[in-house]
């Protein structure tokens, strides 16, 4: 009898912990997307400065951005730089889209975010400072919309997912008892 009760308590604890973890994981994914989007937006603002005021070559500018970024964004910029350096004249748009395709497989970003970032590729590095700035500003505008949407989702659904995890676990415990 005591052993059975102990198993029930242990099982309930396990379910509660699992539910809480699942909820946290979902909430974390939302927060992660927001953080990556914000970081990418800041990086693009910096890229505008590098191009407009320093006239830095693309690979140097992206390397600079990589040093100031973390994890996902850094790896993406470094992947573009690697392709540009090894590409035997590969156009920047191909380097951008290839690196982005690889990033999309493991990224916290939503497919809409990836689509917006992909739009920069065809223009990248192929025109003068003013034109490059316009294309980058346009991406930054789109990223702002994504950031706002990701922030709203994170604050609204983040708490919901965390609580839902516990509620669902509690409900399962009640049903199983």
């Amino acid at each position: 009898m005591t052993v059975r009760l102990a198993f029930k308590i242990l099982g309930s604890g396990f379910l509660l912990a699992s539910g809480a973890l699942a909820g946290r994981h979902l909430a974390k994914a939302l927060a992660r997307r927001l953080s990556v989007l914000e970081e990418f937006q800041v990086a693009m603002e910096r890229l505008v400065t590098e191009i407009r005021f320093s006239s830095s070559p693309l690979h140097e500018a992206l390397e600079e951005l990589a040093t100031a970024c973390r994890d996902e964004c850094r790896d993406f910029f470094l992947a573009v730089v690697r392709l540009l350096r090894q590409g035997d004249g590969l156009p920047a748009k191909a380097a951008w889209s290839d690196a982005l395709e690889a990033w999309a497989k493991s990224s916290a970003l939503a497919s809409t975010d990836i689509e917006s970032i992909a739009l920069l590729g065809p223009a990248l590095g192929s025109s003068g400072r003013e034109d490059q700035s316009k294309h980058l500003e346009s991406l930054i505008q789109r990223l702002r919309v994504h950031v706002d949407e990701a922030r709203a989702r994170s604050s609204k659904l983040g708490a919901f997912y965390r609580e839902m995890g516990l509620y669902v676990a509690s409900l399962m415990i009640l049903l199983l008892l």
Binding site: P57, G89, A92
Partner: peptide
């Protein structure tokens, strides 16, 4: 020609405007 231009300009027309 296209690839050569990309190499010469380092895919950065803005830097060689």
């Amino acid at each position: 020609i296209a690839r050569m231009f990309n190499i010469i300009s380092a895919n950065s027309v803005h830097a060689h405007e």
